[in-house]
Design a protein around this nucleic acid. Sequence first.
DNA 1: GACCGATATGCAACTCGTTGCACTTGCAAT
DNA 2: ATTGCAAGTGCAACGAGTTGCATATCGGTC
Lengths: 176, 176
Amino acid sequence: MALEHALLVALSEQPASGLELTKRFGRSIGFFWSATHQQIYKVLGRMEGDGWVRVTVVEQADRPAKKVYDVTPLGATALADWLATPARHSPLRSDLAVKMRGASFGDRATVLDSVRAHLADHVTRLDHYRALMKRDYPEPSALTGADLDHYLVLRGGILLEESQVAWLTEYLEAQA
Amino acid sequence: MALEHALLVALSEQPASGLELTKRFGRSIGFFWSATHQQIYKVLGRMEGDGWVRVTVVEQADRPAKKVYDVTPLGATALADWLATPARHSPLRSDLAVKMRGASFGDRATVLDSVRAHLADHVTRLDHYRALMKRDYPEPSALTGADLDHYLVLRGGILLEESQVAWLTEYLEAQA
DNA sequence: GACCGATATGCAACTCGTTGCACTTGCAAT
DNA sequence: ATTGCAAGTGCAACGAGTTGCATATCGGTC
């Protein structure tokens, strides 16, 4: 499991409530790790039980109170331990590739539709990532530390989306 | 779920036993979908119960008998139906990216080691895919039908691995 | 004959994540 | 007052995949 560790990274950067984490996972960290709010609340509960995080109820002016989590020393140790272990390479799973491969056993036109929809989606993401890049890292060569880390992960997102766009574009041209 | 459908694609191409499918998933189809033999046997059992596949016990000369599965008309319909539904884009999960982003909360050197290991792995895969490409598709422009489908999926694997190699290389240079 | 390894299939327990729903607080509009 | 909506938290049931182990067959070897 790595959602725990992804949450530790997120909370180390900035303490947050479950809902704030959910939103953050829809953005930066979520490029390479997604999670629903249900899953996040569940894991936060377990992490609190394990003593990895500490919770503080924060009253708010014009909305319900929230529970803000921050990382305990024990959690920091757990994160450091995890960072020191070799990363398994998570097997990728692409429904779309399976459909592309199986297109001759069904209606090829509908598979092409799926490919077009995915292409549009990847183009959107790519645009979004590039906008973030332009806004946050106009001068990449000057970066160090956590800023450099964030920049390089975003670069990974961009390279990945570019390769997906290139692939699907090539696919549509070849199947035209 | 899509393992069922990945298996339907595989069995539509060529009937096979559980173990043969496991091996095949370590190769071509496995570029974009992986599965262990336990999972494959489990799903094959369910698919047989659903009437999607039919099983034939095949005695073999100098080894134990195997159970060869092939797709029934009902299974073919299920596959065609699935191919006609829009593909959800499976969220990707990268432990490595989380570690890269969290590197400043642990020992950066060990994270770099993980990145180097992943880079080596992606280079190996890329070489493998390129060898397959050279061997199986020396003349891509002449392809049609299922051959074209297979070629294009392999192209996706190559483009993906290339982007990963480029990313991790850039990462290591930037962190040097 | 006993053991070993490869082939071949499978179960059980567990972990992780998804889906669908439920509940409270606070504010704003009717 | 009641309705509705957004923020915020959470549960229960299910689905999918992993890990570890179990089992049988067949050939070869000691």
